[in-house]
């Protein structure tokens, strides 16, 4: 249990193509929205940390341009991870525990529309043995889906149910990209894309940005701000070599969740599952019961902004708790091919 409070979360509408908006234009509105929502000024924030990846847009130093959105003069305490911004939040979480800072602004942004994302993500692979083969991210996920189906860990119908649930939940989320309801019949009739995955099993490619503000519980109470308490956070990675892993299980997510304080009263989980079978896999690996609501925001299948989608899971769960929908929630973020790296945050109502 910590005294860290999530007091604000803002997300830009997730869209397939943000047009000509640059980093600054993507980031600035969500930062302003997140700060305004909690009434903190930029100068009240002790530390800023962001997550982004240069290869999405194909230009180095995306985060340097991002600093132009912060009003960073006089100079600010600021850092950046070339990862999903969920890990930027983790960096802030540690600094809060260390007593270095008492508040932080975290933001993530991704503009994948300029490139071919599945191909770009093949650059994440071992540069000597795998990358030259250019296996794209959807094909690798399809290998995992095949392993799940063959091992009897999920059925085609269950994968369809994941998609149906995502679209149903997303109808309540004005920021979601895919909100059109689908039926079991429609999905059964859909042709394979990269078998066994159909297009509906895969998250859309999204442009967007989001921002989140944390501070001490004492400050939130003093300011009369509603907040969600961070019970704990942890993250783990698995082998990069897919052949070394059991692709139907996620021990890294399970261990991270345990260490973050997973308990039996969790009512809802935001799972960062860019592919339908991964939601089932995560649910099983985390041992979440049938009663746990999954992805009340619609999840990654309704919109997946690279380098922000993990932070979005945490922000969405915090927002649901602030709305009074749940008392105890779990949020998960992932990175790398086939859920290689996983971060879990346990949240609760104040």
């Amino acid at each position: 249990m910590t005294d860290i409070a999530i007091v604000s979360y803002a997300q830009a509408p997730m869209v397939r193509d943000a047009g000509c908006a640059n980093e600054v234009e993507l980031i600035m509105p969500v930062i302003n929205e997140a700060l305004q929502a909690c009434g903190l000024a930029r100068t009240d924030i002790d530390f800023v940390c962001s997550g982004s990846a240069d290869y999405l847009q194909g230009a180095p130093f995306a985060f340097v341009a991002g600093v132009d959105a912060l009003g960073a003069f006089p100079p600010i305490k600021e850092s950046h991870v070339e990862m999903d911004a969920a890990w930027a939040l983790y960096e802030c979480y540690l600094k809060m525990l260390a007593g270095d800072i008492d508040s932080a602004l975290i933001y993530g942004f991704g503009k994948s529309s300029p490139g071919n994302l599945p191909e770009v993500l093949s650059l994440q692979l071992d540069p000597y043995y795998l990358q030259p083969l250019c296996p794209d991210s959807v094909s690798l996920a399809a290998l995992q889906a095949r392993a799940m189906l063959d091992a009897g860990r999920c059925t085609r119908e269950q994968m369809n149910e994941v998609v149906i649930n995502s679209r149903r939940q997303a109808q309540k989320n004005p920021r979601a990209q895919l909100r059109k309801p689908v039926s079991q019949e429609q999905l059964q009739a859909e042709v394979d894309w990269i078998a066994p995955l159909k297009k509906s099993d895969c998250c859309p490619i999204s442009d967007g940005a989001s921002a989140l503000v944390i501070c001490r519980e004492s400050q939130a109470r003093e300011m009369g701000l509603p907040y969600a308490r961070v019970v704990g956070m942890d993250h783990r990675i698995e082998s990069h070599m897919l052949g070394f892993r059991d692709l139907t299980d996620s021990p890294s997510a399970r261990n991270a969740a345990k260490s973050a304080g997973l308990h039996n009263n969790i009512e809802a989980a935001e799972l960062h599952a860019p592919f339908s079978h991964q939601e089932i896999l995560l649910r099983q690996s985390l041992g979440l019961s049938e009663n746990v609501d999954i992805n009340p925001s619609g999840g990654a299948l309704a919109g997946n902004v690279m380098m922000a989608a993990g932070l979005d899971r945490i922000g969405s769960m915090a927002a649901a708790i602030l709305r009074g929908d749940y008392k105890f929630g779990l949020a998960h973020a992932t990175s790398g091919p086939c859920l290689q790296q996983n971060l879990v945050t346990i949240l609760e109502a104040a």
Partner: peptide, 19 residues
Amino acid sequence: MMQAPLYLQYRFTAGTSSL
């Protein structure tokens, strides 16, 4: 040493205010 050339195509955008 081995050469592993890599070609990625991007459609750059400049930013709304640069227009």
